[in-house]
Design a protein around this nucleic acid. Structure first.
Lengths: 365, 365
DNA sequence: CTGAAAGCGCTAACAT
DNA sequence: ATGTTAGCGCTTTCAG
């Protein structure tokens, strides 16, 4: 055992190992990186030397030459959101299995942060990028990215005009199912509580890049699905029944108060996602509103607690983990050279009918 | 607008920009990296050239010289766990504000994966590492790490003998509070449902590195707190009342079945964390056991759903986000040169008494 | 099979 | 203020 000096600067290099093993740096490199050809004798000698010196190859130096960093960048809206957390786990597992490291950045639904993250990932020369685009109207940074040839896979949300694979669910169809279920029960005044704007904004906003985008394609599609379902029954969607309060539960909680106070209170609520549903539930509890007796509630997402609340929630379950995993596999395929035209992959959802939606009052449940 | 050729190999370099701006590479570097001194005229000319070529500095090349990668590595047990997800958000926010990128790896509670992640982070030359150690008995990789001088901050869990800052809560004290609350209500048969082993294993296990560690310091401390509380009232802790089922909710669900079937069924359950509590609740629901009427339930963690279940859970709330944020600030301090001796930072917790614990049956609640 | 030399893209001395 | 040169740690020709 030698004395391990704390080296402030410069760690052990391949040259150090080479010296220790009495070979040339080139040979040491071949032995350690298993490329080229090395005799077994030398290989073990070098390995021993490396071990003795506690050598760690410098991945950057290697990457500068090979052109591969073995790392991917992941830009998500909010890692704290259970949905994205599960998604990230799916990504992480597949990436790890393929020997790729994962750089994560939160966009916080802000286009400017998203663009910044992409830029930094480019500077770090990640091999590819996975991203949940926060706005349908901010895509130049993504188009710039794809033009450089860096593989990009969009997750959960779609953006027209960006030349990238997309892995998502059929939000419109699933929302329609959910609302159909409410309509079947006899509801006609159905509110939607969402995080961001729910119709594609026509006016290009100028300088709101720093603020949350409020125009996620998922919610836009889900609203469209709701409108579809209503229209099928000859019901006109009422814009006054859309409550937008940001992507956190507290906003949804506040919106729920507004909703409850509205002159013609809806008999059912469609929550656009798990955080929204949580906020709605809190708002409902605040006012001692019983589900489904006083009001029905359905939501997207089913990642744990939705089945233990009382009553358990009727939801559309998305294969969250699989979405992340599939997207990562797509990226891996691109990294492996797949040149097929980008496609949209839609994963199946499942309507889980539980107890949170019932016939509207009057006919006592 | 020039034609942007898709360059398969080699992106735009500083030399390209220099040529475009008709200056030397060094000057271009100075202008783009704002170091050294450059005339305003040249600065704008270079900036324009860079812009025209869509230049992205190569962070690796820079790091090789500066010795800083502006990135930190984060090794956590399971990003899918709401607790760690919030923690990660805290880390991410502080890191981003400081201009640091975050590399994430899941250890999945497996020592071998944890060690592997640390190794790769070293190879990537991260500036520092944040880590939730998965086992109290696997620390050599951490000691090796600190010996290289790479700053390390331990999160949530503590390990003796590793020379690193630790940010956590007082698990023992908080658990004691929680169990005290149950004792105050009159419970004496209190079960604990946990993920991993709850007493420090004495025997060194040889080759279980690939499997979940089952010996997280948090749970060990929480059990100790429970024992403290019981002992204070002259009650002997009963090992038969500890149910271990792994760190996922399904394991806890199964353990809850076992628990309910035990010959002398406990009157209260202490769940060691949010995922465990979820599983317990599922198990309870499976058997139509009413909380708190049939059995009381308390738990650690309060990150959303705990307050919307019926009845709302009595818990010890941890400042999860702040734990991550504080740990990251500690790391930043180290990166800035702080040489003070490593310390354990304990953040305050809060006992939130809600409805899930009541007096044991007999005295009808 | 092994060694010497070149060079990835950048910054840091050292000149001018 | 700008240009020239060297070199970070590694892999990759190219020789031998």
């Amino acid at each position: 055992m030698e004395v391990d000096m704390v080296r402030t600067k410069g760690s052990v290099t391949i040259a150090d190992v080479a010296r220790e093993a009495a070979v040339s740096p080139a040979t040491a490199g071949r032995a350690l990186g298993n490329y080229g050809a090395v005799s077994d004798a030398v290989r073990t000698r070098v390995a021993a030397a490396a071990d003795r010196l506690n050598y760690r190859p410098n991945a950057m130096a290697r990457s500068m030459i090979t052109g591969r960093t073995q790392s991917i960048g992941v830009v998500i809206a909010d890692i704290e959101d259970q949905f994205f957390a599960s998604l990230t786990r799916g990504i992480s597992d597949i990436a790890a299995a393929a020997g790729l490291e994962v750089l994560v950045a939160n966009s916080d639904e802000r286009p400017a942060l998203e663009a910044r993250a992409v830029r930094v990932f480019q500077e770090k020369r990640v091999d590819g990028i996975l991203l949940t685009p926060c706005s349908v109207r901010h895509s130049t940074h993504l188009r710039d990215l794809t033009r450089t040839g860096t593989p990009l896979v969009l997750i959960d949300r779609h953006i027209d005009g960006v030349d990238a694979d997309t892995v998502k669910i059929d939000n419109r169809g699933a929302a329609r199912q959910l609302v159909d279920h409410l309509l079947d029960l006899g509801h006609t005044r159905i509110a939607m509580v969402a995080g961001g704007e729910v119709v594609v904004p026509t006016v290009e906003s100028r300088d709101d890049d720093e603020r949350p985008a409020r125009a996620a394609s998922t919610e836009i599609d889900r609203y469209a699905g709701m409108v579809d379902a209503l229209r099928d029954r000859g019901i006109e969607a009422d814009p006054a029944l859309v409550f937008i309060g940001g992507f956190h539960s507290d906003g949804a909680r506040v919106q729920t108060e507004r909703l409850l106070a509205s002159r013609k209170r809806p008999t059912a609520i469609f929550a656009s996602g798990n955080l929204i549903a949580l906020g709605v539930l809190q708002g409902l509890n605040d006012h001692r509103i019983a589900v489904p007796h006083d009001i029905s509630l359905v939501s997207f997402d089913d990642m744990g607690w939705q089945s233990v609340v009382q009553p358990p929630l009727t939801v559309v379950a998305q294969p969250v983990y699989e979405i992340g995993a599939t997207a990562t596999r797509r990226l891996l395929a691109r990294l492996a050279g797949d040149e097929s035209p980008p496609a949209v992959h839609e994963l199946p959802t499942r309507l889980v009918v539980r107890g949170s939606a019932a016939a509207p009052r009057k006919r006592k449940a």
